[in-house]
């Protein structure tokens, strides 16, 4: 039996909003540690990895590990039926062919129950090496979203370069070009507004903006986003997931293959 209850059901709604347009179908791996998912987008250019730790749930029971394969747009449609303040409980029997979602409104006697069909998916898992990166940048997530959205008006790709204590995003296209330069901020009163840059070596790398704009759909999950870059390896865009108390619940990490000169 698998059962996971989340009082702040809005977190699950936000996670689905952040992945449903990138990945059609994926499997949740549920174990005593928590729920995780790894999936490539349909063109296999990017990879998304989600982790929700067991102790972040208000109730979590997983007698034996289960893989819940599902259509993410179906799951997302069902989650749209839950209110932002609802408690969400996921339930799956050990050998069932569906998952049950129960939504409970706060301070009300209303509960609703939905079922989503499960699928057997041939998931291909990729091993992600745990390597140090040349550049790590932490910045406000809404700023990253804005930059990606603005630069996509100019071109299809962004060139990210980092030197000393600044990071530069540049795009060019038929109409002209655009650059956004961000400098490291002094330790601010509001940590969520700060930009911090840690650089081992300068870097310049290009990425498709279409994917970065997909990743930015995770913005409501976290006030800060972390970018990690090294020469000729995929970019990592990470949003940590915290609950209203600020406790660490897990993360969404997106990996994007660079565009390479040949």
């Amino acid at each position: 039996m698998f059962e996971a209850k989340l009082i702040q059901g809005a977190i699950l709604k936000k996670i689905l909003d952040a992945i449903k347009d990138l990945v059609n179908e994926a499997s949740w791996d549920c174990s005593s540690q928590g729920m995780s998912l790894q999936a490539m987008d349909t063109s296999h250019v990017s990879l998304v990895a989600v982790q929700m730790k067991a102790d972040g749930f208000d109730k979590y029971r997983c007698d034996r590990s289960v893989t819940l394969g599902m259509n993410l747009s179906s799951l997302s449609k069902i989650l749209k039926c839950a209110g932002n303040d609802d408690t969400i409980t996921l339930k799956a029997p050990d050998d069932g062919d569906k998952i049950t979602l129960v939504f409970e409104a706060k301070n009300e006697s209303e509960t609703s129950e939905y079922e989503v069909k499960l699928m057997n998916l041939d998931s291909e898992y990729l091993g992600i090496p745990d390597t140090p990166y040349s550049v790590n940048v932490k910045m406000p997530s809404h700023k990253f979203q804005r930059i990606c959205r603005d630069l996509q008006q100019i071109g299809d790709a962004v060139t990210i370069s980092c030197a000393k204590d600044s990071i530069r995003f540049a795009a060019k296209g038929d109409l002209g070009s655009g650059t956004v330069n961000l400098c490291q901020t002094a330790s601010a009163d509001k940590p969520e507004d700060s930009v911090s840059i840690s650089m081992q070596e300068p870097i310049i790398q290009s990425f498709a903006l279409k994917y970065l704009n997909h990743f930015a759909k995770a913005t409501p999950l976290s006030p800060q986003v972390s970018l990690s870059l090294s020469p000729d390896v995929p970019l990592v865009v990470e949003y940590s997931i915290t609950d209203d108390d600020g406790s660490d619940f897990g993360y969404i990490r997106y990996y994007l293959a660079p565009k390479i000169d040949e």
């Binding site: 063109s43 296999h44 990879l47 990729l126 390896v233 565009k259 390479i260």
Partner: peptide
């Protein structure tokens, strides 16, 4: 510039 796939960098396990 050419777009690589993610599997070009991360091996299947």
């Amino acid at each position: 510039m050419s777009q690589k796939t993610i599997a070009h960098f991360f091996n299947a396990r």
